[in-house]
C-alpha cells in the first residue's frame, strides 16, 4: 500500500485543495479514493441534516405548544369544567373533557380490543391453514384481510360520517350524539390498528411452540390461549396502546358522533350522554371562541398525554417480553 493511500481521514482542507488543484499530481487510485470520500461526506451531511430537521420540527411544535400552554395550565385549569360560551374569559378549565376522553378511550378499547384480537387469531391460526385451498371460506378470508388493509387507510372523517349516518342520525337506533355512538364509531376506526398489530405479533410466535403444545394433546384453542397469546402479548398490548393514542388524538370522528357539550357524562355507564374529548375541545376553542390561550393549554396537556402513552408502550412491552423471555 502506498503512503498516499494510508491517509484515512479526509478533512475539509483536503477537499478544498483537491477542488482547487484539479487532479494534477494524483495517482488514479488516490483520485478515486478522494472522490469516494467526498461523496461519503456529502451523503453523511445530508442524512445528518435530515435527522436534525425532523427533530427540530418536532421540538418546535411540541415546544411552542407546551410553552404557550404552560401559561394557562395550573391546578384550577385542570380541575374546573370549561365555561362554555364564545368569549375568552378568565374562568373555565378542561376537567370535563379529560373525563369524557377517559370514558371514550375505555369504551372504544372495550369494544375494539377483544374483537380485534379475536379477529387476528382467526386470521392467523384458523384462516391461514385454509390458504391455498378453494371454497367459500378461504375466499372470504382473503376479502377480510383485504378489508383490514383498506380500512387502515380510510380517512377518519369517513369513519365519522359512517358513524353519523348509522348511529347518530338513524331513527332506528336513536342514539343521537352520545358516548355510545362515539365509542362504536371509534372502535371501527382503531379496529384495523389492533388487528394488524395482533396479527403480526401472533405470526411471530414460533411454530415449534404450537407443535409442542399440540403434541402434548392440547387442543388448538388451548394452544392459542395458553401458548400463542401469552407469547404475543407484548405486540398485542402495543397495538392496543397505539389505539388508545389514536382515540385520544382523534378529532374528526368524534366531532360528528360525540357532540360537543362541555358537560361530561355523569358516570362511566352513562352511555347516552354526549361529551367533548380533549382534542375536540381544542378544536372548539380554537375555531369557535376567542380563548386561544386555553386551546394551547389543552393542547399542551394532550401532547403530554400522548408522550406518556408512547413511553408506556415501550415500558409495557419491555416488561412483558422480559417476563416471558426469562431475562
Amino acid at each position: 500500500m502506498s503512503d498516499s493511500l494510508r491517509a484515512k481521514k479526509v478533512t475539509l482542507g483536503h477537499l478544498v485543495r483537491w477542488a482547487a488543484s484539479g487532479e494534477h499530481g494524483m495517482s488514479r487510485a488516490r483520485a478515486s479514493f478522494v472522490r469516494r470520500q467526498v461523496v461519503q461526506q456529502l451523503a453523511f451531511g445530508v442524512l445528518w441534516l435530515s435527522g436534525l430537521a425532523a427533530v427540530g420540527i418536532l421540538l418546535a411544535v411540541v415546544g411552542y405548544v407546551v410553552v404557550q400552554g404552560a401559561r394557562v395550565i395550573d391546578w384550577e385549569f385542570l380541575t374546573t369544567p370549561p365555561a362554555g360560551g364564545l368569549a375568552s374569559t378568565d374562568v373555565g378549565g378542561m376537567s370535563t373533557t379529560v373525563v369524557s376522553t377517559v370514558y371514550l378511550v375505555f369504551w372504544t378499547i372495550v369494544i375494539a380490543g377483544p374483537l380485534g384480537v379475536l379477529a387476528a387469531i382467526y386470521l392467523v391460526e384458523y384462516a391461514e391453514e385454509m390458504e391455498g385451498s378453494r371454497g367459500l371460506i378461504p375466499a372470504l378470508v382473503g376479502v377480510v384481510r383485504f378489508a383490514v388493509e383498506i380500512l387502515a387507510g380510510v380517512p377518519s372523517i369517513v369513519f365519522g360520517l359512517f358513524g353519523y349516518a348509522l348511529f347518530v342520525s338513524a331513527r332506528a337506533l336513536g342514539w343521537s350524539f352520545s358516548m355510545r355512538s362515539a365509542a362504536v364509531t371509534g372502535a371501527c376506526l382503531v379496529l384495523p390498528v389492533i388487528i394488524r398489530a395482533s396479527e403480526e405479533a401472533i405470526r411471530c410466535v414460533p411454530r415449534s411452540h404450537r407443535e409442542a403444545s399440540l403434541a402434548l394433546g392440547a387442543t388448538k384453542w388451548q394452544t392459542v390461549w395458553k401458548v400463542v397469546l401469552p407469547s404475543a402479548a407484548p405486540g398485542v398490548v402495543t397495538g392496543i396502546v397505539l389505539s388508545v393514542g389514536r382515540v385520544v388524538s382523534e378529532t374528526a370522528v368524534f366531532f360528528v358522533t360525540l357532540g360537543g357539550t362541555v358537560r361530561a357524562p355523569d358516570h362511566l355507564f352513562d352511555l347516552a350522554s354526549p361529551g367533548r374529548s380533549m382534542a375536540l375541545h381544542v378544536y372548539y376553542l380554537a375555531m369557535e371562541t376567542r380563548a386561544f390561550d386555553k386551546a394551547m393549554g389543552t393542547s399542551a396537556v394532550l401532547i403530554l398525554v400522548i408522550i406518556l402513552i408512547n413511553l408506556s408502550i415501550n415500558l409495557i412491552s419491555r416488561r412483558l417480553a422480559a417476563r416471558l423471555g426469562g431475562e
Partner: peptide, 28 residues
C-alpha cells in the same frame, strides 16, 4: 397424542417457568 408423546429436534420449551412447562400437559 395423550398416548403418543413427542420430543422434537430442537429443544422447544414454552417461555414459561420450569413448573408450568411440565404441568402444561396435565393442565391441558
Amino acid at each position: 397424542r395423550h398416548y403418543v408423546g413427542m420430543v422434537f429436534q430442537r429443544p422447544n420449551p414454552f417461555p414459561k417457568s420450569v413448573f408450568d412447562n411440565v404441568a402444561y400437559g396435565p393442565r391441558a
